[in-house]
Nucleic acid binder design. Structure first.
Lengths: 216, 216
DNA sequence: TTGCATTTGTTACCTTTTTCACAAAATCGA
DNA sequence: TCGATTTTGTGAAAAAGGTAACAAATGCAA
């Protein structure tokens, strides 16, 4: 099929498939069908096949997919065969927590540096990582080969920080500030807005339960 | 219109609209049209009108929406006229960071308690909040009137923790463990999977730039 | 009061995403 | 080799989501 425009929903699912395959591989399973994968991990088998078909023909009819092979393919497709170096801007509690978040540390992501504007924090050591002056961001980012930036500053500073990141030539940014940001065409920006998620839970709680006691 | 099944995409946008309205209100603006709202905050005016129409007719033709009125309506719809009390399970760095995340503290959400299984952490005070033994979750949750739970434990413990939360009668759960969870029909579960977001950035970085230097 | 300008609420259309269904391909046992 | 079985890859259908367009309602100026 080899579609040239891959939806983000598809790539997000690739991460999930990869996780499932790692689990199966550690159990020693050699092959798996899309149907088994779907049943076991509560997915849809047609969707799995279609998502994979965007990138090639990895399966064998009548057999399924070779677990290790597919895992390697997905690892490659997701770029997880390369290491990434992360810079976190904002050395508050959230930034500090992210600095040794196992998702960063355990995988192909290494937190290389923290940045802050507060002179009280600059120079501090948080876990393995040093806090630098955000004014030197571009210089340190180059020196430390940072290719992923994380914004963990208050909302009002997020847009200028994003521009700083952009000027330093970094193309992948994760934003935790609860505000929409405008990024250049060539920069991939992912915003994780905890406020929206919380308010979505609040909305759910505000809905009256249906008569039978079930929610819609 | 008053649709009975409201999509989560719609309620997420209500949060955004509310944020915009708060900004406009603080500037002293009395009315706003969907078109102004859309242009200023990079939204689509038809979508704003359609989202709002799910809940009633809040606008006046030829005038637009009364900023304060609409803000109050959205606040009510999102259940933000009630306080929520949050319990965080997992008093590691992430749990601790969330405990005084301004998104929780500054709004209608109060972090009432932290929970952990590590005897070394139980009894500790993190910011304003005490760390309780997770074995006493149900009891403390009732005593502290907790109605929102946050899962901030390693992936392998997330499902049993969710069941604990569920048994305590809590209906709204935010999950930070990088694993899909199975929740009962009557429980609203929001998973924030940083691993998927990170890997999505990695995928983007792995794509070759297009010949003209732009990304697709 | 009338006509013009504005802006909503809603319908119709279009796009994207998901699910269904099945021909084509591969394995395996006899 | 052949027929039965499995399972992929994919086209077609369905569902969900987003955008455009416009009649109906409102305000305002003359």
């Amino acid at each position: 099929m080899k579609a040239d425009k891959i939806s983000e929903l598809t790539t997000n699912r690739l991460s999930i498939y990869l996780r499932c395959l790692n689990e199966l591989a550690s159990e020693g399973r050699k092959t798996v069908s899309s149907d088994i994968l779907a049943k076991r991990f509560h997915l849809n088998s047609a969707q799995i096949r279609k998502d994979l078909a965007c990138f090639g023909e990895f399966g064998v009819r009548g057999v399924g997919y070779y677990v290790e092979n597919l895992r390697d393919q997905l690892t490659r497709i997701l770029g997880l065969d390369h290491h990434h170096r992360v810079g976190i801007i904002g050395a508050g509690r959230l930034g500090a927590a992210l600095a040794d978040y196992y998702g960063f540390t355990q995988t192909n992501f290494t937190v290389a540096a923290l940045f802050d504007a507060d002179p009280g924090k600059i120079g501090e050591q948080i876990g393995e990582v040093k806090v630098y002056d955000v004014a030197n961001f571009s210089k340190i980012a180059k020196k430390e080969s940072i290719d992923v930036a994380v914004i963990a500053v208050p909302a009002q500073f997020a847009q200028p920080v994003l521009e700083l990141i952009s000027k330093a030539g970094i193309k992948a940014v994760m934003n935790f500030a609860p505000t929409p940001l405008l990024a250049g065409e060539d920069v991939k920006l992912k915003t994780i807005d905890l406020t929206i998620s919380l308010e979505s839970l609040s909305y759910f709680l505000a809905q009256p339960a249906l008569p039978n006691g079930q929610q819609k």
